[in-house]
Design a binder for these strands. Structure first.
Lengths: 215, 215
DNA sequence: CGTGCGATGTATCGGCCCGATACATCGCGG
DNA sequence: CCGCGATGTATCGGGCCGATACATCGCACG
């Protein structure tokens, strides 16, 4: 329903129009923690899908006056993708509605990556939904480690233990983030709880940070 | 080349023949740490593919004498899947050859889950390959957090930080496992040292999974 | 005694996303 | 001048998932 790439592309193109290659680089930088590298085999078909839906437009990058450029080498021009008003609307709608897929690993990751464009109430809702999901996974792993321990070999058990550890760690992380959200503060303070003297307008509260409008 | 499901199914069917539903449950228990739940939409096609390749056989579960059973309700019999000699060979081959996909998240997970059927040298090779891959991911995240920090918002940075933390943690985990392997000890010893030094044959004693035969 | 409901059980379909692959240009160093 | 890595667009086959459909069994609840 709300594929990861679609969401991420609509989110990124709101900062600036881009061509495919650039988009992939930004995508990889932004989602590096949850995805190794976005494949062109999914990027280009998704772009075409988004254009068919009217959420983005693609325009061949043409010099101001095409004639004066030597046409000796008819280089295939880069295709620049720009988000439309409907696309922005679509993105807002995808943020608002949180389905079950919002809480799986990649779904949550991409939503989190665009929390700067998400209002606080929705951020809180997503964080709590994710926490619930991870808690369920944690209970499942505990069950297996408890009940079916003797049916599994030592390596499999070690794998479960490592997974369980990761779950517990993520729950703690989420708890911290939730507490921060509730207190109205910025995302997360690395260690020192004294005076987060950082950049204030990094756009935690207002998604209306309309900077980087490149014509 | 070596899809996760194919590997896992061949590994599981070496313990006992199973029908689809049971297979899915075992799969979910064994891979619970790396996969939420195996979908039938991938399980059944994979089973058919494996049969077409001659690595498993499927047999309709028929009562000993079909006639005496009341055929009033023509219940669709369960289909029991059994691994063939070629299947065992294929599994051994999949273990031996470690490609790049052996070290990604799910690929490594499923290989690790069947380490009890893997010789020590290969275990070591896989653990080190995985470590290398995670170290690369870690460096990538450090780069982004270092170089492109000001280009990203606070939430995205927090996501990268969390991912980086997970990488560092997994590297430590792998180091520990590698050290254990080198010392010839069992996987990871919380405390007890029971049942070490296994992995001799390709068909260990049946873990009594032949129960639950309800006619 | 019926009735519904959850577990068991097999199976298909549409769709996302990936890895491999192909092709073309540009700038730079050997 | 030639290769080689970065830039750049694009397709194809295939694995895996979520939704969906259909059928049986045992049991609790009214």
């Amino acid at each position: 329903m709300a594929p990861v790439l679609e969401f991420a592309i609509l989110g990124l193109l709101q900062e600036a129009p881009m061509h495919g290659y650039e988009l992939r680089k930004e995508l990889t930088a932004k989602l590096g923690a949850i995805r190794a590298a976005i494949s062109y085999g999914s990027l280009y078909p998704t772009l075409r899908r988004l254009q068919a839906a009217g959420w983005i437009t693609e325009a061949a990058e043409t010099p101001a006056t095409a004639e004066e450029v030597p046409a000796l080498t008819s280089r295939r021009g880069r295709v620049v993708y720009t988000i439309t008003a409907e696309g922005k609307e679509r993105f807002a709608q995808l943020i608002a509605q949180a389905g079950p897929e919002t809480y799986d690993d990649t779904g949550f990751g991409v939503h989190f990556a665009f929390f700067a464009r998400t209002d606080q109430a929705t951020r809180l809702r997503i964080l709590e939904g994710r926490r619930r999901k991870i808690e369920e996974r944690r209970e499942g792993l505990r069950d297996v480690l408890g009940r079916a321990a003797e049916r599994l070999d030592a390596y499999t058990l070690e794998l479960q233990r490592h997974g369980l550890d990761a779950c517990e760690r993520e729950v703690r992380w989420l708890e911290e983030l939730i507490a921060n959200e509730r207190s109205g503060r910025a995302p997360a303070a690395p260690d020192t709880g004294t005076a987060t003297g950082r950049g204030d307008n990094d756009s935690p509260p207002t998604p209306g940070t309309s900077r980087t409008e490149r014509p």
